[in-house]
Simulated assay, not measured.
Amino acid sequence: MVRFARISSYALGLALLSGTAPGHGAGVAQAQQVDRLLIEKAARRITLFAASGAVVQVYQAIQLGWQPVGAKHFAGDGRTPEGHYRIDRGLENSAYHLALHVSYPSTGDRAFAADRGRDPGGAIFIHGQPNGMDRPAGDWTAGCIAVDNQQIEEIWSLVGDDTPVDIVP
């Protein structure tokens, strides 16, 4: 379920002007509940799916950790995780324009790192660009998935807590 508290003032303003109810993705042609996200690292793409399997929206040119090939295993490795996760909360006030927390590390991620005496890291988000800065070129995050600010506004308004996220190579 989309959390109404997570709709931005920008999207709310557009929704009120357009007559669209809050939480229905202002600027998105077909506002539907999003039931799954697929992040394809190599394709640099996020696809949002409805329960029916229909594509709700596709976002291209995403930015990843500075070491984009391979799964995240340890804190500071610069990699974006791969696996099955969930959006577990939104963070409206962060160093980036809106942020949706991805539930990394999973139990398996923790066990992998612990077996090697390492910290798996954490704080993986789908977020907009750094506040007060232009979009950096290339892959630059510490493991997060970055999109432009308009894209995160739409994603924020469509994706609720507990939404599954599959991150694939």
Rank of each mutant, 00 (worst) to 15 (best):
P136C: 08
V56T: 11
I39M: 01
D139C: 09
Y96R: 05
R45I: 07
I126E: 00
A21T: 11
P120V: 00
K41W: 09
G122F: 05
I62T: 07
F112V: 10
A42G: 09
R86F: 15
A71Q: 11
A29V: 13
E154D: 10
V56D: 06
H127T: 03
A29N: 14
A29C: 14
A113H: 11
G108L: 14
V69G: 02
A114H: 15
V56C: 12
F125A: 01
G23L: 04
K41C: 06
A123I: 06
V55H: 12
D109P: 04
F49Q: 10
A50V: 10
Y104P: 00
Y59T: 00
I87Y: 01
G117F: 08
C144M: 05
V55K: 12
H73C: 12
Q30F: 14
D115P: 04
T107W: 13
G23W: 02
E153M: 11
A51T: 13
L64N: 02
N149P: 02
E153L: 09
I124R: 00
A114S: 15
D109I: 00
V69H: 09
D88A: 06
L37C: 08
L64C: 10
R36C: 03
G53D: 09
G25R: 01
G19F: 11
I39P: 01
L48K: 01
G27R: 10
Q60R: 13
Q57F: 07
G25A: 04
G78Y: 03
Q60C: 05
D77C: 12
D134F: 12
G65L: 12
V102A: 06
T107E: 12
R110D: 07
Q57C: 12
R44W: 07
G143H: 03
A54N: 13
L48E: 01
A146F: 03
G76M: 15
G138E: 06
L98R: 03
Q32E: 13
G108C: 10
Y59K: 04
G76P: 08
G138R: 07
G65I: 10
P81H: 07
G27C: 11
N131K: 14
G53K: 09
Y104V: 05
I46A: 02
V147L: 04
L100E: 01
K72M: 14
N93S: 15
D115L: 15
M133S: 15
R44P: 00
S94M: 07
A61I: 06
A61S: 15
L64E: 02
V55E: 15
A142T: 02
A137D: 13
E92G: 10
L37W: 05
G65N: 05
E82R: 04
D88T: 09
Q32G: 06
H101I: 01
D115T: 10
D139F: 07
L100M: 13
G76Y: 12
D109G: 05
T20F: 10
Q63I: 03
E154K: 09
K41V: 04
A142Y: 06
N149F: 05
L38T: 03
M133P: 03
T107A: 14
A51E: 15
G132E: 08
I87V: 13
G70V: 08
I39V: 14
E154W: 07
S52F: 10
H24T: 14
Q57Y: 11
I46R: 05
T20P: 06
I62R: 02
D119I: 03
